[in-house]
Write a protein that binds this DNA or RNA. Sequence first.
DNA 1: AATCGAGCCAACCGCTGCTCT
DNA 2: TAGAGCAGCGGTTGGCTCGAT
Length: 256
Amino acid sequence: MESWGICDQQGWRKGPWTPEEDKLLVEYVREHGEGRWSCVSKSSGLNRSGKSCRLRWVNYLRPGLKKGHLTPQEEGIIIELHSLWGNKWSTIARYLPGRTDNEIKNYWRTHFKKRKPSHTQEEKRKSHRQKQLQENDKNDNTTKTSPDCQAASVGEKGDQETIDGRVNDNVVVDNHYHHHHHQLLPLMMYQDSSAWCDLIPADNYLWGGLWNLDDQNGCSKMAIQTQVNGADHYPRGGGGDHAVNYIHSGGGGYIF
DNA sequence: AATCGAGCCAACCGCTGCTCT
DNA sequence: TAGAGCAGCGGTTGGCTCGAT
């Protein structure tokens, strides 16, 4: 490995950031706002690449970042969303205000990736989950009003293509979505944390027997009840983040 | 006290997609 | 429409810390 603190071929400094560099970057962003990262070195005096500056800002310096361990609610959200979207860390991060994609990615890799439940545990878990979701689906049907809020049915139609274009046999996506790019959201996003946590059985469901969330295509077979809401933004994979303004970070709610 | 290994996390790299000209 | 430049994403690396031996 190359040593930290040296410069790369373009002359950019690499390695850990110093407090002085942090200060310069914060001042730059305060004056110029986020973006235009390629200009940072010129304007701020930092001898860092725009990429490096952006990463440092996003993952460490940005106001509102939460430090410390993820809460059980956040962990649950990660699990749920990962089962929906796979390794779309930035997309998942949008639903966890104050958490970064890097943080979530690291967390996932260290906590979940290597764990695989036994076959029987997984079968048990799936059937339990299916039951839970069917009950919720029943309850939910009474609350749907607008076409945009129609819930996707769960586990009734066999294999369906997910929003990633992958096949997931339990996540059933309302065809409406494909035409309007409506946002798919897990059920728990509409419930307060205590309520959705009730969906998860206490017995080994999460921590004693984490299921294999890294199965083929990064898409677990866990049944997820989804809803389609009226937001016209859909979190996409790949490049081009779009300002991420649809998360309201206050009060533990997720407003889109 | 020294060594080893696992876990955590910051940061880099390469690639993709968007925007602008 | 094509190409260049930039921003963002996901994968990976490697240093640091801490507990076990």
